[in-house]
Design a protein around this nucleic acid. Structure first.
Lengths: 186, 186
DNA sequence: TAACGATTTTGACTTTTGTCAAAAAAACAA
DNA sequence: TTGTTTTTTTGACAAAAGTCAAAATCGTTA
């Protein structure tokens, strides 16, 4: 069974008919480290899931890269702005480790949304989950010091700190890597 | 025509039947300044819209209030965490000006989601719009200095700065009000 | 193993933001 | 209007985080 379909089912039931249609639309790829899944300016958008590997999403601001999120195994991922707006992405999605992914293009997904209520519900629940994640991130950036944000990340996503370079983590936390290095030394 | 239904229609078409059902469920209230729409710990949640007035949503952390958002006229509002999770809210929603609101309880909304695809689509689009808003807020907190965040707010929501007290604005921006006062003096 | 490049750490210093206390200004009510 | 309360501003100082440059460490590959 496809892992992305498996994942969808965690949000709600899917009839055999939808499952069959999904199977036709879901694509699979294996990509090397450093490769881009999406580059800034592209319009093609997808909802995807990693079977193995690691990705980061980042955008560029004043010549420096800012990491907006990291994607691990078995989490539904997508680039929010272009996915929900059908506009050119300002984000880049890059594999940080060799990765195997399952994905569905948003045009195919939209068609399924129109055809099946169940799929629409799942889409809504995914968007709502995304809201919750972002809300927590806002709270963290709004109220916590760099040190507390780092320790929160350590306890909630210990694997992130293990697998991702210090510079990328610092950017994600909104601090300089020198600062993070000093925090970590303690 | 009810202003909340009008608003829903901006996201997608609604049949007369749904509109009729919505009309039966949508409640209206007029509330004085300082009143609470939702208090921390309550489970009842709603999607609501202000016809007139102003609200803030805040939570308490280490004995201080942190504003998470402000609500103005004609914007769809809801407390994200409890609305999408059906768990007790950690948020308080308070009117900052005398307000007239239209709202629908989330249990009623869920029932409509189950019954009508169109309503589900609208719910999904609202959640997606919420994601976009939160994503921008994360970017701002992650990459911009207090001064730039304030100026961004000034240009995107000039009315907020007009109508909301300096202390509330500072909390929303994640800075101390003394700092905001100094930024503003320039 | 040696050498290269990338990543991380360190040091000295600057800038930004926070803290605490008090004064000034504004808003509100008797 | 006159007090009273709330909000905003100011000052002196402390802490947090950024900047820039250089050194150290790590991983990879020739």
């Amino acid at each position: 069974m496809n892992a992305l379909i498996e994942k969808f089912k965690q949000y709600g039931p899917l009839s055999d008919e939808i499952e069959y249609e999904l199977l036709k639309k879901i694509k699979n790829q294996t990509r090397p480290k450093g490769d881009f899944f999406l580059k800034q300016g592209q319009i093609i958008t997808c909802l995807f899931m990693l079977e193995t590997g690691l990705v980061r999403s980042y955008y560029t601001i004043e010549d420096r890269e800012v990491n907006s999120w990291f994607g691990f195994e078995n989490i539904i991922l997508g680039s929010i702005t272009p996915l929900f707006q059908q506009r050119p992405s300002s984000e880049n999605i890059q594999f940080l480790e060799p990765s195997t992914i399952h994905y569905i293009e948003s045009s195919d997904l939209e068609a399924l949304y129109r055809k099946y209520t169940e799929m629409n519900t799942i889409g809504r629940l995914i968007a709502e989950e995304c809201c919750k994640f972002l809300e927590e991130r806002v709270n963290s950036l709004q109220t916590q010091s760099a040190e507390k944000r780092y320790h929160a990340l350590l306890s909630f996503q210990p694997d992130a700190v293990q697998r991702i370079s210090l510079g990328h983590i610092a950017s994600y936390l909104g601090i300089k890597q020198e600062t993070l290095s000093r925090i970590r030394k303690k």
